[in-house]
């Protein structure tokens, strides 16, 4: 086997893994403090892609600005959604899950009515390739990996070092005890939900030029994000990062040796193994 090919496949796996991680981090963050499994999370990714398409193809705004705008728009949308659809069901796993399914369908259908079913492509922001130790890697993918790493590190710092991060972790552990310390639970939940949605939107914006945009693209990353957080452990941020790297690598090698559909199967095989042998995931609590 060719070393450069291996390297190339690994780098591709890394990019996919990074995108999955950014989606999964939001999902697991929301789960950890609200006990809500948000099936509409993929739609936030899709909306990010949509914003990228409109702003870059129709309005030709610089891509970095689009990234920021999409995060703000979808983040605010997330805050509104949390207030009206999830707050009444906070902590109630099943009702919240059903609400989120309905929300996912609603957002998808509304998008479909306004956008159509056609795949739309977003033109590439960083054309050209980089030769890295003999492996060819597009500058675009490299930019995606770096941006995702910046997001992941920033989130880590926010959660570990800031006061609001401390409050988020406190709520994740014990909501009542957090309230007793004076934490405004509603406000923190609303912030965290918005943040999670903004991250999903960021992933959607970043990947839009590599793939394409249509109202259904949210399904796949959502599925991958679920695989990742089951693998890494529900609610664990570190688990989401490690899980994403594992899944990205496994899938990209799977595509090399097997077909694409077969490599999609690998994620589920991983889930089955995890659930059989370590149901709490790699870094799960309890």
């Amino acid at each position: 086997m060719d070393m450069t090919l291996l390297l190339q496949v690994t780098l591709n796996g890394l990019m996919l893994g990074m995108i999955y991680i950014v989606v999964a981090l939001g999902l697991t963050l929301i789960f950890s403090i609200m006990n809500v499994i948000n099936f509409a999370h993929g739609e936030m990714y899709m909306l990010g892609g949509l914003v990228a398409y409109y702003f870059s193809e129709q309005l030709q705004i610089p891509y970095m600005l689009i990234l920021v705008l999409a995060m703000i728009l979808v983040g605010v949308f997330g805050i509104v959604v949390e207030k009206f659809f999830f707050r009444p069901f906070r902590g109630e796993l099943l009702p919240a899950l059903i609400v989120s399914l309905g929300l996912s369908m609603t957002i998808q259908t509304l998008t479909l009515l306004n956008f159509g079913t056609e795949d739309q492509s977003v033109s590439t922001v960083f054309p050209g390739m980089i030769n890295f130790l003999g492996a060819l890697f597009s500058k675009e993918r490299l930019a995606i990996v770096i941006t995702c790493i910046v997001f992941i590190l920033s989130l880590y710092l926010l959660i570990q070092r800031s006061k609001i991060g401390c409050a988020i972790r406190a709520i994740a552990e014990d909501r009542e005890a957090a309230a007793l310390q004076g934490v405004n639970i509603d406000r923190i939940c609303s912030f965290t939900f918005g943040l999670g949605c903004a991250l999903a939107a960021a992933a959607g914006v970043l990947i839009a030029p590599v793939f394409y945009v249509n109202p259904y693209i949210g399904g796949l990353p959502l599925l991958k994000a679920f695989i990742i957080i089951i693998l890494g452990g529900m609610g664990s941020l570190l688990g989401a990062v490690v899980g994403g790297l594992i899944l990205g690598t496994v899938e990209s090698f799977g595509t090399l040796f097997l077909s694409v559909p077969a490599s999609n199967l690998l994620g589920f095989i991983i889930i089955i193994l995890v659930l059989l042998f370590k149901p709490s995931g790699l870094f799960g609590h309890e």
């Binding site: 401390c166 972790r169 406190a170 552990e173 014990d174 005890a177 609590h285």
Partner: peptide, 8 residues
């Protein structure tokens, strides 16, 4: 039961 944030 103290209710500390045990992972913190």
């Amino acid at each position: 039961g103290k209710r500390l944030f045990s992972r913190m």
